[in-house]
Design a protein around this nucleic acid. Structure first.
Lengths: 240, 240, 240, 240
DNA sequence: CATGAATGAGACTTCATTCAT
DNA sequence: AATGAATGAAGTCTCATTCAT
């Protein structure tokens, strides 16, 4: 899929290109995904990837420039699949809120259901300043976050999403917590209730995205401050 | 610093322990921080670290079990310093909101002012399922986020912070966006206005942490939905 | 050309033999000569040879057993052409001296005008104990030197060329310097005045081939020795 | 020897340099000489060289940049030894003729007695346009031929050697035949009577180096030409 | 016939790590 | 304490060569 759609990464010199090759590429990508997921980038070896397919390392290198490119393509493929899944499932006619909630849920779901391995891979290797590859990956991420960006922009237009902050920041506001939650999940190897988490996250994030009702917020803050001050006063009046 | 305070990481077999050794450890840690920051974990070499100090690689390995441990200690040291800075500067008598804002600002500041190198290192290596080390690092992170956790807990107690979500999720809600913003900053190599970003983030995050005013929110949502529905209707009535 | 005339080198298993095949063989030989000349044996690749013809490597291998054989054939072809040129131009009715001079001039000319590439190839690869190929090449060289050998033999017969040494040695005496000069020329990439060099070489070599006039030579040597001895004596008598 | 005297070839990055290293270098050079001699450059493998010493390939590569450099050093060492042998044995007070004869004999002897392997290596690899190495090797050859050049120059000064040709050409006149003879010897794997060959070569070459006695030569040539012409005439008069 | 594809083999390279002194 | 030296292991890369279609 990605290899035809996004030839971002230049192919190897003696790249075969026939029908069967397509298959080979797919196989290697799959094996690569498996191994990288299991071991992580550093501990994965091209030898093992080849071995799993019963082919020689040389063959792998004739399809991919190297370990790094292979990994990038694995990640890229995952992104491609995810982007497609999101684009395909996005309720075109839904409200901004519905679309937003869909993206949040889908993101979590895709990450967690692909397995913690790929999740880790995407989050950690996708984050590693990977020399030349970073560019390609950054582009992938841009494409991946595009649907959300569109939704946010639409929301801003019709006043449902606050316009007092740059889109970039809002994007971080949305993806940041999701990735953090995913890290918690993978690191802790904790089984996560996707539905519940998605609902909660979508809810809290949505509220954060609301245009602030200035007077109301100020009033609320005032009320809180007063409340807390009083409590402190009382504590000080009767210490212990 | 960290090496005495938190012997989480088992020492090397033939760890020297004298006065001078302490100095050596410090030097190596410093050189390590520099090299890891500049090159990232993977591209950094123990050889370079040793070379910068004019000592042999073997010496480095007599103080640290290996590259990995050294890196973990470098990160650990950074955490220690940061934790200390936060604990020291935290306005003990401030309101929940003030403390929260302080932590947000401090976090961004520490990360960005330590240099993009260390920032990248902490975010990316700190995130890499690093084998045996991850435990130690997870512990570091736990300690690092402890102040925020305490503030959030206090906020929940006095009703200023929503209690309808697990603390863990709120933590992700806070740290997630910050880390995401930091990545944007390092990757894009963009000079970031710390003050402005901190203020914006603190503001938006604080509003997200507010206990939801159920009726109000519902009303707002209802209003939005109706508004959007009407707009859609009109668009359909007069297509193009 | 050579491939039909001298099937010294065993043909490939599935050697095609049709009209068109002949053409193919020629093409490959030409491309091979070009590439081997440009890069030298080691740095030339079968891939490039195939590529220049727009055919697949496999095709090359269906006409030639391998890189080595191809190279041998390229060299063999050059020899064939050269032999033909020499045989054709040799002044049948010339004196021994004239024929000798012709061969010397022709040899230098053929080598230098074929380009330094092929010259290097013939001299260096022709010299490499190339395993199975050496035999074929040795044979080529035998044929190449045959004209000279005949001239030398004729010269010996009629007393114009010294008979006190084996022909083999005389051959080395003639080809050795020529090849050496050619190496100088290619290595130094020096433009060589073929005519002048040929004349000089022919002259000096011819004099070396003369039957030694024993008495004369002895006399000359005696005179030299006496002369040098006297000079030395004088130097010693009046040292500085 | 060569490694200290002529650091022409840059050492590897992590080149050890202590006492033992010197020994290692020597060992590797010896093993290298053996393997290269036996197999020739192309068929020799770094693996075998390492294996013979019971060390790892990595070690070999830590002392030498690569196969090519190692080979160049092997050849360089052989040159160094030979140069030393020639310089040491050269009869300082001998006549030009004696010194000349000594060099010729020594050259043949060194080549043949070092074994056909090294002889082949020096002649064939030394001749291969070896990219970057060629420079170093050319320099070696220059040093190797220096003694002869000096003798020739001296001979020209005192009129014992012809001055009507560039030294460069005379050098080729001397080394060319010797190398040719050596090739004959190695290729044919023929046992060569060094003494006899050396004597013959020295004799014939020396006569070729003599200043031409113009009148005498012309007379001789005239006599030959006339003789041959007459013979031809007679043959034509009584054909068959 | 031609070729796409695969591959064995070997050169290099780089490093973290070990160990004897 | 320090270190020189060695090295296993893996990545990277390049080719000649083979073979089924």
């Amino acid at each position: 899929m990605s290899e035809t759609a996004h030839p971002v990464l230049p192919a190897s010199r003696r790249q075969p290109a026939g029908r069967k090759s397509q298959q080979r590429v797919k196989e290697i990508l799959e094996a690569g995904r498996a191994v990288f997921s299991e071991k992580g980038y550093a501990r994965a070896t091209t030898a093992e990837i080849a071995q799993r397919l019963g082919i020689s390392e040389a063959t792998v290198f004739s399809y991919f420039r190297g370990k790094r490119e292979l990994c990038a393509r694995v990640i890229g493929d995952w992104y491609d699949e995810s982007i497609e899944a999101i684009e395909a499932g996005l309720p075109r006619d839904g409200t901004v809120h519905q679309q937003f909630a869909f993206i949040v849920r889908m993101h979590l779901q895709l990450m967690l259901e692909s397995g913690t391995g790929i999740c880790e891979l995407v989050l950690s290797e996708g984050r590693t300043r990977h020399h030349e590859l970073s560019e390609a990956l950054v582009e992938m991420q841009r494409r991946y976050t595009a649907p959300l960006m569109r939704v946010l922009a639409r929301g801003q237009e019709c006043g449902q999403i606050r316009s007092d902050m740059p889109l970039r920041l809002l994007r971080s506001l949305v993806f940041g917590p999701m990735e953090h939650v995913l890290w918690d999940a993978t690191l802790a190897n904790r089984r996560t209730d996707i539905e519940a988490t998605a609902t909660q996250l979508a809810s809290v994030l949505w509220s954060a995205l609301q245009p602030p009702n200035v007077e109301l917020a100020a009033l609320a803050q005032f009320s809180q401050d007063v409340g807390e001050a009083m409590r402190r006063l009382e504590r000080e009046r009767a210490p212990r």
